[in-house]
């Protein structure tokens, strides 16, 4: 039976853009000019997705579970290239760069093919799905992710949750046990209900742009995060990608000087669905 189906659909199963005709491809753009590094998105993510708060000790030993994190980088002073990196961090007056980093939902995700049990795969709406129930915890995906945004449950963190706090868990999201990998889902539970709502309202295969917000986007005080459907020509995120001349399927973007869009590690050819807008700074100040 499986063989019959295989022979009938052979050419389709051999094509590499299997989801070319799907109506959705969720994408994001993050404006680093607007990001203040406040961490509201991180907090919102903890609340929305039932992330365990691991405490100081586990955080120090590298077991923290923040799906979204604010990476902080310090610039080397440009006028003095001889200064070494340790000293460079001693220039707080210049301020830091902040980079909110979460799963980039790569279209050519390196984490997907290495899973021995097929616990992670690509959904028709271009999400990089993680099936918690199927995961056996080989952690190969975590190694192969160049962004290191996959988080492993090294302990059963929910055992330590004091009594009334289990009431604040989000009922739409699984609570993960020890030994499995997890990561940002682009708030897949919200995507699900938005799609259902659109279907109920009679919009087939079309979620109105702006009706669907991810938790991080919703809580960002400067509205640095934009989320939407990259296959919808009128969506804000698609227009953002276009105006900054960032294209899918191109890892060397050929663009004018004054646009700021880029994707992290484009040269690795993993096709991330998140575009960042570079921060512009006055280096003379």
């Amino acid at each position: 039976m499986a063989l019959k189906r295989m022979l009938e659909n052979w050419s389709r199963l051999r094509q590499h853009d299997y989801y070319a005709d799907e109506p959705y491809m969720w994408g994001m753009s993050i404006d680093l000019n607007k990001c203040t590094g406040c961490g509201a998105c991180v907090t919102a993510c903890y609340a929305e997705n039932n992330l365990p708060v691991v405490g100081k000790e586990h955080c120090g030993s590298g077991h923290s579970m923040h799906w979204m994190r604010i990476e902080r980088f310090w610039t080397e002073p440009e006028d003095n290239p001889d200064v070494d990196i340790e000293e460079a961090t001693d220039h707080p007056e210049r301020g830091a760069h902040y980079l909110p980093m979460m799963c980039q939902q790569c279209n050519h995700a390196p984490c997907e093919p290495v899973c021995p049990v097929a616990a992670t795969y690509h959904t028709p709406d271009a999400l990089n799905a993680q099936v918690y129930n199927r995961c056996v915890g080989s952690r190969y995906c975590g190694n192969n992710c160049p962004f290191k945004v996959r988080y492993f449950n090294f302990f059963d963190f929910w055992n330590e949750l004091p009594h009334p706090l289990e009431m604040q868990l989000n009922p739409d999201v699984t609570v993960r046990s020890k030994g499995i990998m997890e990561k940002c889902t682009f708030c897949v539970q919200r995507i699900r209900s938005a799609k259902d709502a659109a279907e109920d309202a009679g919009h087939h295969d079309h979620v109105e742009d702006g009706t669907l917000l991810t938790a991080c986007q919703q809580s960002c005080p400067t509205q640095a995060i934009v989320f939407g459907n990259l296959k919808d020509e009128d969506s804000k995120v698609k227009r953002g990608w276009e105006s900054h001349q960032v294209e899918l399927e191109h890892f060397e973007q050929d663009k004018s000087e004054d646009v700021r869009g880029y994707r992290v590690f484009e040269e690795l050819n993993v096709e991330p669905c998140v575009m960042y807008l570079d921060r512009v700074r006055d280096t003379e100040a």
């Binding site: 199963l13 590499h16 279209n107 997907e112 795969y121």
Partner: peptide, 17 residues
């Protein structure tokens, strides 16, 4: 096995088979 999953699984931008 690659295509008999209930979700036919494309992964990593590669073909199903």
């Amino acid at each position: 096995a690659a295509q008999s999953m209930f979700t036919v699984q494309p992964q990593g931008g590669k073909p199903v088979i």
